[in-house]
Design a protein around this nucleic acid. Structure first.
Lengths: 242, 242, 242, 242
DNA sequence: GATGAATGAGATTTCATTCAT
DNA sequence: GATGAATGAAATCTCATTCAT
């Protein structure tokens, strides 16, 4: 796989296919169909379907790195607020529920798949490092009260991830809101130093604006309004495969 | 499905098969093999494989109900401690990582499967109700300081579930410990009224005893020491399918 | 595989498919097509294509046993003559060149295939035992001059097999004749005691009658005149796959 | 194909690939991998994979010619002894069982492949001519008793080839020895004139020295000690593909 | 000459599900 | 109830061969 364009086009096809079919139902054909190339070409570039998905995880994390760097120059309180927003409500690749559901399926394969697990660990390390850095910077800057950044980061990430997963799987959107309020009450209220406060438009105790979302989809060339069904069924979670 | 014995034997087979094959790789044959009956009989009792799994979820939640009732007469602080322990480290069916991994796979199918989703919602309702009841009882009994039980329950469940999921998928056991400490620091320390405290052997800021575990497996007739690999590889998450 | 009729029908399909496609080009579909059943049924009864072929070898040798017994009551000289005839020119399953070519292909897979090798060894043991028994009986009966039956059997089988293989692969029918004469000259002339001689119609120094041939095909229900191409090209060996 | 160096390097690659993969499993990629050129180039030089193999047979026989000439000035008895040794135990390309197994697979394709058949016939003609010439020269020189050289050559070649094939396919090395003894007893003892005898170190009734073997491999640039597995398993025939 | 990319046409298996008995 | 047999519809992967450059 030398040509980055080819890789990008395959990665984009994987993304779209995951959105439409989910991980479990994903076939090599689904991916090829979203490419202007043949199915056999996939196996020319990759050893197996798993290998393709492994590279897709890699691809995702390469991009995550780029994003993180972008906000490093903002003050810690703001970065924390952005982090919460991003994790719980998007933006960026959080745009499509269907994609996140598929990623969740993929994560559950990690116990059976060394390659997946390794990439997910790298990703986990990254995520915790980002949050811990925010917390440490805030401590140093006097914006946050004394606390153990490692422990706090672990709690916040677990809570946000858990909330996201429960929302995605059983389709209860309230979860996000409740957990956001819960962290505001139990963590952020105590964390923020007297004179520090969340920026008004980022306060985790209020709902966020649906702002510059859809980054991954946009980068992948889609604009975030692809044909993934944003089902308007009575059951908001319904995403049944045809 | 009239005969409860037949159902029980199928449910047991499903449990064992999930432990050994995971959900994604689970076949009707895998289930039948752990039964003294034939594969075709499964389809006599159930409409489809999904239907079997749906009933398995139902079966699980019936049993959950029974369990919950058992502790209802203990004081709230103790019940909270037991809840934390149970969620994060077992006991009961938490004993087998492999089973929980499979359940996680199954949960990720809920967005595609109305029946799964419905049962998981019922289960979620139950779980939250249990925790909220503990919190409310504690408030009334003056053991807990003033707080919003709904919000707190949502946060705790999200955090514990998120921690469990991260531990299971990427195999980082530290997660459980860190998150337990995180909740102790940020939530429990503030929650407990001046004169209340966790029972010594249940304090969420210390490691729990490996006590009466293995309840589901035991009930299912296995004793909890089936041949599910409790891999002692250098990579603790490794559970690769053969 | 309990039902012997099903097995027999599959074995027959294998035989026909081998005759028409050869071993190398043989597909599971080729076999299924000669059955009134589906391709998947083959994999219900057998674990793999190789497994089917392995059982085919087994099937062949079961039948070989039955045949051998039939001639055991004839005098050694006659049995030897029959043996030579059978080996070099048929009868029985020797009827179809195409089948023998396919068997030859299959034999060359033995070095890569434990199961094949094992069956072929059994077959080899059988064949040698049969010939050695003839030779020993002849010695005892005074029909043959003193010699080492093991050594002689090895030589004869090697010579006949080699002749057959060369004839089949390069299509030189003279080979059979020459080698028959060669063995008559160098071996049989010296082997036969003064007063013993081959029966007139079986003398290995004259051509055999095309007699009761086609036994395998007949038993398999075909009559030996199936649609296997008995090509009448200018090149008698030509059997090019379509 | 003009450049003889290119051809030689491809032929060498074919030889190595045959040793490692056998004929049935041989892919164009296997050949290209043992070249410093690309797979596509093979199809620039040859019309098809079969065409490459056809040329490989041609290549082999060109070299056979050269070899034969070398011994033409030795006395017939000695040449016969060398012939037997060479055929049954090496030397030259007989060194690698794996190569011979592959050649055997290739020979069994001759019935389906006009080009292969033609080359194998030429080879067969050559081989018989060589042996017949030895026998005729021996007759003329009075070293051999009266006999029909054509018939004798046919018998010997068939016996040796058959022995080799049985040894290779079912892995019974005794075959070679038994057949050698068989020919010594039944043929050579009678063939040699009173006053002629095999040279001491070449007597076909004793085991040969492992002498200047490995000619083909050497010529092909390998030295005969490539990494072809000279398996020392308990099962000497084992050569299972990975 | 030389190659990387590309592909069509399979081949083997898998499996949920059905059906006759 | 119970089962062995049966099957259709895929799915992954392979590979000889071609083609644009």
């Amino acid at each position: 796989m030398t040509d980055p364009d080819v890789r990008a086009s395959i990665m984009r096809a994987v993304y779209e296919a995951l959105c439409e079919s989910g991980y479990t139902e994903l076939t090599a054909q689904d991916i090829a169909d979203r490419t202007d190339k043949s199915k056999s070409l996939l196996f020319y570039h990759y050893d197996s379907k798993e290998d393709i998905l492994g590279d897709f995880l890699e691809f995702l994390f390469e991009r995550f790195d780029e994003r993180v760097a972008e906000t490093r120059d903002r003050p810690p309180v703001e970065r924390l607020a952005v982090f919460v927003d991003w994790f719980l409500y998007g933006p960026e690749e959080n745009d499509r529920q269907s994609f996140h559901v598929a990623m969740l399926e993929l994560r559950t394969q990690a116990p059976y798949n060394e390659a997946f697990r390794e990439k997910l660990r790298k990703s986990d390390d990254q995520l915790r490092a980002v949050l811990e850095e925010i917390l440490r910077d805030g401590l140093e800057a006097g914006e946050f009260n004394e606390h153990d950044p490692e422990e706090t980061a672990a709690l916040l990430i677990a809570a946000f991830d858990g909330a996201r997963i429960r929302q995605l799987t059983i389709g209860r959107d309230e979860y996000l809101e409740e957990v956001r309020r819960g962290t505001a009450t139990w963590v952020f209220d105590d964390l923020l130093a007297e004179d520090a406060s969340f920026p008004a438009d980022r306060d985790p105790s209020t709902l966020p604006e649906p702002d510059q979302q859809h980054r991954l989809a946009a980068d992948l060339g889609d604009g975030g309004n692809g044909d993934a069904d944003e089902s308007t069924d009575d059951d908001p979670a319904e995403r049944d495969r045809e």
